[in-house]
């Protein structure tokens, strides 16, 4: 018998209450109960970063967080990045700089880069590579991902002046 618990949390600004088995992983709740399928499951073992979401203002791998651990949490997924005016500067950067090919890793890249640019708004290439070290991409060779994040950093820094 698997134990159920009720978990209340906010996802992309919207309050949700779900009843889940205690063993359910956050990534499954997001994808299968809330139908937010932008968050991907890659390795399922906290290596690849495709499942990265923002949990209480920190990047985490949602394949290695239990939903019951997200009680009262604020969660941001890739679906929450774009605003009413269109794409987030990071999304625009990934489009302009060809920061993706197959796109599987992209949601995790975007959500991690979003938090990374809050932590370090004007990073150099080395800092980007270190800050993004928890996200794997098998297509791009990372070169254009670095450029895309620099694109967003420049746009955001310019916008905030």
């Amino acid at each position: 018998m698997s134990e159920q618990q009720t978990v209340g949390f906010t996802v992309n600004g919207e309050r949700h209450t779900v009843s889940v088995p205690t063993r359910e992983l956050l990534v499954h709740t997001l994808r299968e109960r809330l139908h937010l399928t932008g968050t991907h499951i890659g390795c399922d073992s906290s290596h690849c970063g495709a499942c990265t979401v923002d949990l209480n203002g920190r990047s985490v791998k949602s394949c290695t967080v239990l939903t019951v651990q997200a009680q009262n949490a604020e969660v941001l997924t890739v679906e929450g990045l774009a605003g009413p005016d269109g794409l987030h500067p990071l999304q625009e950067g990934f489009r302009e700089e060809h920061g993706l090919q197959c796109g599987f890793c992209t949601p995790g890249m975007l959500v991690r880069a979003y938090r990374f640019l809050q932590e370090n708004p004007d990073p150099d290439e080395d800092q980007i590579r270190t800050g993004m070290a928890g996200n794997l991409c098998r297509c791009t060779g990372y070169q254009n991902i670095v450029k895309a994040i620099r694109y967003a950093a420049e746009k955001q820094t310019a916008g905030s002046v």
């Binding site: 990047s59 290695t64 991690r112």
Partner: peptide, 9 residues
């Protein structure tokens, strides 16, 4: 140790 996301947990 590990990577930025894992170091947050």
């Amino acid at each position: 140790i590990a990577d930025p996301q894992v170091r947050n947990r």
